[in-house]
């Protein structure tokens, strides 16, 4: 077996406390499973997520960062997810301009009731990162 197939990514899954986390709860209620290497990280609202907290995991050990908040129009605080979308777009644009693999950051809406979508997102993102391979940034000691 090649190294790539054995590679188990470390994934941070940032979830808002209303929809994203709710999706996780619904998944749990339905006994749906998602990869164990995906670590949920709960924030109050994706609109309250600082850009540095998207970048920092990629430097300190994560292979990918996924972010899930409420669907457009469903934000508990009305517009947090729209603000988050701009911030994610900003971070991706910076990473893209500097050739630093913007595809290691995902943003996807997951509603409270969408347990299946939550599990699918975690699984799909895990597979996607497995294909990409380990994040070179996290292993460098000279950054």
């Amino acid at each position: 077996m090649s190294d790539k197939q054995e590679f188990e990514p470390r994934i941070i899954y940032i979830l808002c406390s209303w929809c994203g986390s709710g999706g996780g709860e619904t998944a749990a209620a339905h006994h749906l499973h998602y990869p164990e290497n995906v670590r949920p990280y709960r924030v109050n609202c994706t609109g309250a997520l600082p850009t540095v907290h998207i970048i920092r995991p990629l430097i300190e050990g994560a292979d990918g960062v996924a972010i899930s908040g409420c669907h457009p129009g469903d934000c508990h605080y009305n517009d947090g997810n729209f603000r988050a979308r701009r911030r994610v777009a900003l971070v991706k644009s910076i990473l893209d301009t500097l050739d630093l693999e913007p595809e290691r950051v995902w943003f996807r809406y997951v509603a409270h009731g969408e347990g299946r979508r939550f599990v699918d997102t975690a699984t799909e993102f895990n597979d996607h990162i497995k294909k990409l391979g380990p994040n070179p940034l996290k292993t460098r000691s000279d950054t």
Partner: peptide
């Protein structure tokens, strides 16, 4: 960090600092 990366540059966080600053001011 040492265990995972086998070493650490000091002072750390050159790229993180600049990426963070880019996120804030670019």
């Amino acid at each position: 960090e040492l265990e995972r990366k086998g070493g650490l540059r000091l002072p750390p966080n050159t790229i993180f600092f600049q990426l963070g600053r880019l996120a804030h001011v670019s």
